[in-house]
Design a binder for these strands. Structure first.
Lengths: 209, 209
DNA sequence: GACTGTGAAGCCATTCACAGCT
DNA sequence: AGCTGTGAATGGCTTCACAGTC
């Protein structure tokens, strides 16, 4: 199967499969079937096979997949065979938590800079990085070859920060602010909207339950 | 149009529309068209109308929607015309940040209890709530009539915590741990997987860019 | 016998396009 | 003339089912 446009849902599942495979590696399991992966992560086995088929043939008919080998393939596909430098804008509670989040570090995302406008936050140490003023954004992005920007500022400041990230040449933004950000076509923006997520629960409780 | 099963994507957008309408209220804007909402939140106007059509006819042909009225309808649909009591399990960086997250409070989600197993965290104050040991989970859920559980514990502890929440009668769980949680059919689980989100960016940078 | 890889079918969400109302 | 509400068309993801391989 030739890959042209990969569904986003597929990419998200690949990330989940890869974590599950990591778990299997820890458990010293050598081989796994699409059905076992499916059960492990809560999807159908056909789904697992279709997702993998976008990128090649990784398994052996009648046998399954070699765990370590498939894990390696997935990490490569996801671009996790390298590290990525991350800048976080907004050193409030959420930004600070993300700066210290092990789940990023474990997968090769290195928080290289954390910026804020608040004088009280500037100078604060978060692991190895010190919170710096917003003005150094462009310098830090160039200097540390930063690939990914994380926006954890209040809604009112989000677009300004985005414009600055775009101006600095950032091509991927993870947005935690509750605002729809405008950015050029070639900049990928992903929204992690915490309020939306809890409101879906609220809807389901109110509407069905 | 009769509502039976509402697409989850629709519910998420309603949440976003409602926030945009709130913004319009602040700006004293009285009337809005589906096209203006669409532009404001980055979807198509047909999408906006279809989403609303699941729940009724809220507009006036030739005119548009009354901002406050539509806002009221959406808040009611989303179950946000009431408050919800929330318990957070895991008082690490992320759990603490969520406990203090204004975006929840603003929309009527009240963090009523925060629990952890770590002695060093128990007793810590987060706004009005004090971190308590995991053992009081069932008591607090009953006592405060808690509707929603938020899981911010490490992967290894996530299923145990989920089992406890289910046992306590919780029907909605927001899961921040990188594990697929097993829960009964009637319990709604939503995953906010921070690593998956940043890995989708990594994939796009590596695969296309 | 077991399990992958994949075309075909099925299903669901989005977009189109226009009738209907103000 | 302008904008909503909606049936029909489209497009895309998921599931089915089975041929192919070990």
């Amino acid at each position: 199967m030739k890959a042209y446009k990969i569904p986003e849902a597929t990419v998200m599942r690949l990330s989940i499969y890869s974590r599950y495979l990591h778990q299997l590696i820890d458990e010293r399991i050598m081989t796994v079937s699409s059905d076992e992966i499916a059960k492990g992560v809560g999807v159908s086995s056909a789904q697992v096979r279709k997702d993998l088929a976008y990128f090649g043939e990784f398994g052996t008919r009648g046998v399954g997949y070699k765990v370590e080998e498939l894990y390696g393939h997935l990490m490569k596909i996801l671009g996790l065979n390298q590290t990525w430098n991350v800048i976080i804008i907004g050193a409030g509670k959420l930004g600070s938590a993300l700066a210290l989040y092990q789940g990023f570090t474990d997968r090769g995302f290195i928080v290289t800079a954390v910026l804020d406008i608040d004088k009280d936050r500037i100078g604060k140490k978060l692991n190895k990085v010190t919170v710096e003023p917003l003005e150094v954004l462009k310098d830090r992005v160039k200097e540390h070859n930063i690939n990914i920007g994380v926006v954890t500022v209040p809604a009112a400041a989000a677009q300004d920060v985005t414009d600055r990230l775009v101006d600095a040449g950032i091509k991927a933004i993870l947005n935690f602010s509750p605002r729809v950000l405008k950015a050029p076509q070639d900049v990928i923006v992903r929204n992690v909207d915490l309020a939306v997520n809890i409101e879906v629960l609220s809807f389901n409780l109110a509407f069905n339950g």
